[in-house]
């Protein structure tokens, strides 16, 4: 049995013109401790997959099974790092994390333990120096760090990250990617991350899941990234393996899944690719 199983998930949204099928037969098995990236053109339904795993959307067909239990509502064991940080603007960094910690550990941890745990998680994302500042007093990168700390503090079984660095400048993004790798090395979380940045996907992931274009998007190809950890972005820049992975993803995105491609071709490819994905 797999740790996290996304099985034949389809979803339809009602629109004035009738039902719109956003996802069609998405299947993916994830091992514990895996770092998975979902990559694809915008509008292909990456976020929809994540939201279904989070429980914020309900699949029309198929479903998600986490440790043998079906997912049908949101919960802290599937913590989400939102694209725009989604911190409560009226709470400080500490209080934002506290809200999550209180919710999850209210019965199991004492007050002192909770305080320590909150501080520990803020330390983990290097935010100890500004933990009593409100979101409007810190930079975008720092807000996202707090968002990550809040998610980690829930001790989730799966960490879901929805384009966590999408709104950040390149330097800040690199910093945060390093932080995420460092934390991942320490904690070994199971992570699903959505991205449209090829370098980010190759650098961070164990597997890259490439999605076809919508409507009725599904998984196109899955690429196993077998680079040694810890990974160093400078060393990898000249690594031929790294560049091979990179070009493979690029080829998928810009050759096989050009946004103008006729729908029929994509479908054929999906069917062949789905077979290979089951092996993975």
């Amino acid at each position: 049995m797999h740790f996290l199983q996304i099985s034949q998930v389809s979803i339809e949204f009602p629109t004035p013109k009738g039902q719109f099928k956003a996802l069609d037969g998405v299947s993916l098995n994830i091992r514990q401790g895996d770092f998975i990236s979902l990559i694809g053109h915008s509008g292909c339904g990456k976020s929809t997959v994540l939201n279904i795993v989070a429980g914020l959307y309900q699949a029309t067909e198929g479903g998600v099974i986490l440790e043998g239990k079906e997912v049908n509502e949101p919960g802290p064991e599937r913590a989400v790092v939102f694209q725009n940080h989604s911190l409560l603007p009226w709470l400080t960094a500490y209080q934002n994390v506290e809200l999550a910690v209180k919710q999850v550990f209210n019965r199991t941890k004492s007050k002192a333990e909770m305080k320590e745990w909150i501080e520990h998680n803020l330390e983990l994302v290097h935010m100890s120096h500004a933990m009593h500042k409100r979101p409007d007093e810190i930079s975008g990168g720092m807000k996202q760090r707090v968002g990550i700390a809040r998610a980690l503090a829930m001790q989730p079984k799966v960490l879901l990250m929805d384009e966590p660095f999408g709104a950040l400048d390149a330097l800040t993004r690199a910093h945060l990617q390093d932080s995420v790798m460092e934390i991942q090395n320490k904690l070994g979380n199971t992570v699903i991350m959505i991205t449209h940045d090829v370098d980010e996907a190759v650098l961070l992931s164990d597997r890259i899941v490439m999605m076809t274009n919508g409507p009725a998007a599904t998984i196109g190809e899955i690429l196993d990234v077998e680079l040694d950890r810890p990974r160093d972005r400078l060393a990898l820049a000249d690594n031929p393996e790294y560049n091979r992975y990179r070009s493979e993803v690029l080829r998928f995105l810009y050759e096989k899944q050009r946004k103008v491609e006729p729908f029929e071709n994509a479908k054929k490819k999906n069917q062949t690719n789905n077979k290979s994905s089951k092996v993975a």
Partner: peptide, 12 residues
């Protein structure tokens, strides 16, 4: 919507 999502994930 973002904040209500947070609330849902936290099961407030």
């Amino acid at each position: 919507k973002d904040l209500t999502n947070v609330s849902q994930v936290l099961r407030l």
